[in-house]
Amino acid sequence: MSAPLLSVRGLTARFRAGGREVTAVDDVSFDVGEGEVLGLVGESGSGKSVTLRSLLRLLPSGARVEGQALWQGRDLVAMPDARLRRVRGGAISMIFQEPMTALNPVLPVRVQIEESLRAHTALDRAGRRARARELLDLVGIPDAARRLDEYPHQFSGGMRQRAMIAIALASEPRLLLADEPTTALDVTIQDQILKLILDLKDRLGMSVVLVTHDLGVVAETCSRMAVMYAGRIVEQGGVREVFASPRHAYTLGLLGSVPRAGTERSALRSIEGTPPGLAAIPPGCAFNPRCAFATTVCREVRPDLSPRTPGHLAACHHSDRVAQASLAA
């Protein structure tokens, strides 16, 4: 692989919650290549959204972000605000999980698209108007000219998500951070939005980090994937390798109910028990209380995320046993 577009190393995000500090994202590292779609999966609360938001330093004030996120040789985490502003919504755009709350309710959609164009292009007023309309056309919103002057509450959920995608595409980004772009939508709309994103990715030559709950989507659309648990990446590798022989017990559990062909949609299989709260992450491997493979070492020593086969990383003391179990299944 040529030099990655984005290279994240040791990304850590902490919040102060009730007087003490909790770590929502812990030492996360991954690369995103040119034109690649990286899938990021994990249960609710595992830190997927915080990971994406901390890349662009969008966490609420009071949150602390450490580590590195190298973008074209520059570190997003340490970059001065003014420079970061040019990257935000410029080279790197983000679409949010909740289309119902991510658009400003009191501003017409036109204003919300045009302000992005104003920030990142040299277009004049008329140019911005024309471009805003093109963008709505591009994301498949019918009757764009009229809808531009409407407010978000006049849009359905799917249409709002399209509008948000239009805003994200305003400056032709090279990387799109898509945070569960379909989770909040009706099942029938989910496919359309996903297709739209992938289609636009091909047409505009973007890379995408796709956060999803849906392993079927990962199998269909991503080349590589990373699995998060309790703020850490516990497994990472090519989608085919990970699906064929997962090397972390949590991933194995997730994959348990997914058809091998990967054509059918299925949500993450529920694994016995619940993920730990941030304030009470167990010592050793955070997954150990729920893990069928756990031994003493799992309760005491935190496993490092390290290569098990070339390009396939896992943070599990018993990754070989896990791999064997998956083959036996």
């Binding site: 938001r53 969008l58 919504g89 949010f96 709350t101 991510a102 400003n104 302000e115 948000m164 805003i167």
Partner: peptide, 22 residues
């Protein structure tokens, strides 16, 4: 800290514009 304000920030708008408009 509302979602739409974070989204506005993610567009690369100036801080003052985010505060006044959003």
């Amino acid at each position: 800290d509302a979602d739409y304000v974070t989204f506005a920030r993610s567009k690369g708008l100036r801080g003052s514009l985010v505060l006044l408009r959003h």
